[in-house]
């Protein structure tokens, strides 16, 4: 992430730089631009984060003062909590399948929509519609209409003589219906891909086609490399979001994570512990374990990014 400032400013060349003027020249602008963020970070964000870290070492039932219990929340998590491992499995499965599929889908549609075809704004808007619905109660009802025993999917399958199960409430398939929901709401990464595609200078393609490069070659040689910062962003963000995914399972399973905890996402379990069973201390410990896991993943991604993400700087 280093940015090289190789060119000395005229002022630096003219004067003998004192320490303070160098700081003013080099560091001050950055910190000034970050000022709003710093105010927010130190004023609103870091305090509650540190508090939750402290709470993770306590028993805190929300209603009485927290009691210090050392690392026992963490110990319990890794030694005596089958729901922790179950929810971790569910979440990992969800991340592994939903993120790549959603990204591939979003990129494919964005490419398709980036062509100069008629009615483009209309299609874009239609494809974004599912994402507009957000966490609406209507989605839960709709998903039942589609994936229940007598739902749309099984009516289609019946045409081929197949009798399907109730996908949404069968523990073997219920998680898949949530993965499909997540892919269906692919609007946000699609828009980000589109914005990225729009930033690729068109003359590069023109030059390439003059050289006789095929469409596929253009995609591999121009589009993908120039899009890597956006691909990188989408991959990181979607993965973090998928690890933290809460709303789909919450609305569709009514907050239960059932059938048989097959949709008990990690944060849904955390929420149940915190607000359902009054164990905010334990929930905080769960949250910090998740943060460590996602943080490791993100750090690893940043370390490897220099081998494949192409920046202009």
């Amino acid at each position: 992430m280093t940015v090289h400032s190789t060119i000395a400013t005229p002022i630096e060349q003219a004067q003998r730089p004192s320490v303070w003027s160098r700081i003013w020249q080099n560091d001050a602008p950055g910190y000034l631009f970050l000022l709003p963020w710093f105010i927010g970070f130190f004023g609103l964000t870091i305090g509650p984060m540190i508090t939750s870290f402290y709470l993770s070492f306590t028993n805190f039932d929300l209603l009485q003062a927290p009691q210090w219990v050392g690392a026992s929340n963490y110990v319990r998590m890794f030694t005596a909590d089958p729901k922790f491992s179950a929810s971790m499995r569910v979440t990992l499965f969800f991340v592994i399948f939903s993120v790549p599929l959603k990204l591939a889908f979003a990129l494919a549609v964005a490419m398709l929509l980036n062509r100069g075809i008629k009615g483009l704004p209309m299609y874009r808007a239609l494809f974004y519609l599912p994402s507009l619905l957000g966490a609406s109660v209507a989605i839960a009802i709709l998903w039942r209409q589609i994936f229940a025993g007598d739902g749309l999917v099984n009516k289609l399958l019946a045409l081929f003589g197949i009798i399907g199960p109730s996908w949404i409430s069968n523990p073997n398939y219920s998680l898949w219906t949530l993965i499909i929901l997540s892919i269906w709401q692919f609007g946000s990464p699609m828009i980000i891909f589109l914005a990225g595609l729009r930033q690729i200078p068109q003359d590069m393609y023109e030059a390439a086609s003059l050289d006789g490069a095929s469409k596929w070659r253009q995609f591999v040689k121009i589009t993908l490399p120039l899009l890597t910062p956006v691909v990188f962003f989408n991959a990181i963000i979607q993965t973090i979001e998928a690890f933290k995914s809460f709303t789909p399972a919450f609305i569709i399973s009514g907050g239960t994570g059932n059938p048989i905890n097959s949709t008990l996402f990690y944060t849904l379990y955390l929420y149940q512990e915190a607000f359902g069973f009054f164990r905010m201390g334990y929930a905080s410990a769960l949250a910090w374990v998740l943060l460590a896991l996602v943080g490791l993943f993100t750090a690893f991604s940043f370390l490897t990014s220099k081998y494949w993400v192409h920046y202009d700087d």
Partner: peptide, 19 residues
């Protein structure tokens, strides 16, 4: 069936009676 019952997530509109 268990499939049908599992659709019930404790809200009125998900109960087998209403459906």
């Amino acid at each position: 069936s268990p499939d049908e019952q599992a659709i019930d997530v404790g809200k009125l509109e998900t109960s087998p009676l209403v459906r």
